[in-house]
Design a protein around this nucleic acid. Structure first.
Lengths: 248, 248
DNA sequence: ATCTATTTGTACGTATGTATT
DNA sequence: AAATACATACGTACAAATAGA
């Protein structure tokens, strides 16, 4: 078990073994790992080494540490923010384009809302309506346009939240976050684009209605139309690649 | 810049600042970060603290360290394995099911191969054919069946590799890896399932042909059929949630 | 409210390992 | 083969946080 893999630094190895320990013992979020002193004895390593191992696990979001008596290192559910940030970093050097993202959105978001049709409760519908109110008036400035844009993406992230398919939900939210980070000014606030703004908003209102009455096919179609429209809007910008290191 | 966020440990803060430094200076993979001694001076921190910060960045896959003269800490392109492992960890406590994954595969894989139709070169086609040869005879034992299963998933991962859409490619590969980690024995080697094995294999051969001649619609349809078949095969197993901490 | 014990956090010095020149 | 420049690991000391007496 504690055989050291060649050319792998000791802290990394320690971190891996601890990870295995968590899995083997079916530990759950909140459960406490042995204290540093204990681990020093078990691995026969110095404090610094054990601590570096802990930092590795912490960076991966798998544990949280607390000081004080009863403190220590605790198993922790990996947060969505962290995972999302880590995934963004992966794409940092890989130059995604707007069309790459929209190819996926066109596939996944209609599917997501079709699943949601007729399953949302009163409160969830209200939350969606709440968000749409954030952009009920046409944007008049670049600043306002950016806010509208972000709120609109929040609408999609919220839908993803409701999905019972956690994998689908995560992917959809991740893409919405990627787009939100761009904070592109689409110059939608210029008069020529009022019509597009109106159409986009109408889509979302129609979608909410279709979700209420549970019309799967209608949901799917509206979302697809909406994606095509949204892509058109963003494509009007130069096709700049997406590049950003996420902090957390 | 170096204002310390409250309740954020020093190493994490140092790691964040270094990350910002990489972004601000548009550093690329291979570029060298300041040496430990240098960072100790700049941040006015001890060696241990700087090293913990480095461990954090390393765990995120953003840097690699090398010993020796001319060694040090280098910016590194986040590897797919690492990202994939981190993402798996996120889903560790979230109990994904086989159907969750297949809902996505059914949407994404047909789209992926449609894009690939007529774009693959001689060598790429050969690589695919190579993989299919790994399961040209029906499996006779549980062990053989597992290997077939993994090879088949390798076929899908390889297709994803060819996609010009890096986002789509990553998602598809990630799902293939998730399924491969399951190493479920499907008892496909039992006589009753020969027919299903034959059908699945035929799909892949037909797909290669359709890719060659560049029939987008055909590619899409074959892959969809294949996904439906594959799901049926896996669903014949009890619907166990997917739970595994990825090592790397 | 204060003190005390526990546990992590930070710092420093030193010795050793390792790859390049 | 030796010198060099760097990372790796250890041990100790003390600081900070927190829970409980």
């Amino acid at each position: 078990m504690s055989k050291l893999k060649q050319h792998q630094s000791v802290p990394i190895h320690v971190a891996e073994v601890i990870k295995g320990y968590v899995v083997d013992n079916c530990m759950n979020p909140g459960d406490r790992l042995p204290a540093e002193a204990e681990l020093m004895k078990q691995f026969n390593r110095s404090r610094g080494t054990i601590r570096e191992a802990m930092r590795i696990l912490e960076a991966q979001g798998l544990v949280k540490t607390r000081t004080g008596p009863g403190g220590g290192c605790f198993v922790h559910e990996v947060s969505e923010e962290r995972t999302s940030a880590l995934l963004s970093n992966y794409f940092y050097f890989r130059n995604l384009t707007i069309s790459d993202i929209y190819q996926l959105r066109k596939q996944l978001e209609p599917e997501l809302v079709a699943n949601l049709a007729g399953t949302l409760n009163q409160q969830q519908i209200q939350e969606l309506e709440e968000i749409t109110r954030e952009y009920e008036t046409p944007p008049k400035t670049a600043e306002e346009d950016r806010n509208h844009h972000r709120s609109s993406l929040k609408f999609h992230a919220q839908l993803a939240e409701y999905s019972s398919n956690k994998l689908l939900g995560f992917f959809v939210r991740f893409m919405a976050n990627l787009l939100a980070e761009l904070t592109i000014t689409r110059r939608l606030y210029e008069p020529s684009n009022f019509e597009l703004w109106r159409e986009g908003r109408e889509h979302q209102l129609n979608l909410i209605h279709a979700l209420k009455v549970g019309d799967r096919q209608q949901c799917r179609q509206i979302m697809l139309d909406h994606m095509i429209l949204a892509e058109k809007l963003m494509q009007s910008q130069e096709e700049q690649p997406i590049q950003k290191f996420s902090q957390f």
